[in-house]
């Protein structure tokens, strides 16, 4: 993928970031699974509902840190730019989907929260390819 850091940067990051990323992804899908299977009542439901977006924020922070691990400032700027566009794309898609769902238009179905991760990565790949022309 065009926006990925160098091999050395990846290795430096893996030692520190990989365990935390596993915990963040585990929390995200774990909360989803608890909601789906046990339908928790209010105090626990609120706590779990807060945990899920928190795990996404943590995950986003780790992705940005991972992409910034490279020491090449042009590549860092390029990746930051791509992450910004991917975040904006995901936010726009969520807003549109929410509007369609609220007004029950275009048969918008409920989507599992876990879909946010592949959609974000999809936007990141597209943004990375488009922005490559601008930076290189």
């Amino acid at each position: 993928m065009p926006f990925m850091p160098t091999k050395e940067a990846k290795m430096r990051y893996r030692r520190r970031g990989a365990p935390a990323i596993v915990v963040a992804i585990g929390t995200f899908f774990g909360v989803h699974s608890v909601f789906h299977r046990y339908h928790p009542s209010e105090p626990w439901a609120i706590l779990l509902a807060l945990l899920q977006p928190l795990s996404i924020i943590v995950l986003a922070a780790f992705i940005v840190q991972f992409l910034n691990e490279d020491r090449d400032e042009v590549q860092i700027a390029y990746r930051r730019h791509a992450v910004s566009w991917a975040t904006a794309g995901l936010l726009a898609l969520c807003l549109i989907w929410n509007q369609l769902g609220v007004y029950k238009l275009a048969g918008a179905r409920e989507v599992a929260p876990g879909m946010a991760i592949p959609v974000f990565l999809g936007f990141l790949i597209v943004a990375g390819i488009v922005l490559k022309r601008r930076y290189q």
Partner: peptide, 22 residues
């Protein structure tokens, strides 16, 4: 400079303004 060739090209063509340290 310990950067990629693409980065040198981006700076050279004015697509990217380097930081003060660089």
């Amino acid at each position: 400079l310990e950067v990629s060739r693409q980065s040198v090209n981006a700076i050279e063509t004015g697509k990217f303004d380097p930081s003060l340290p660089l």
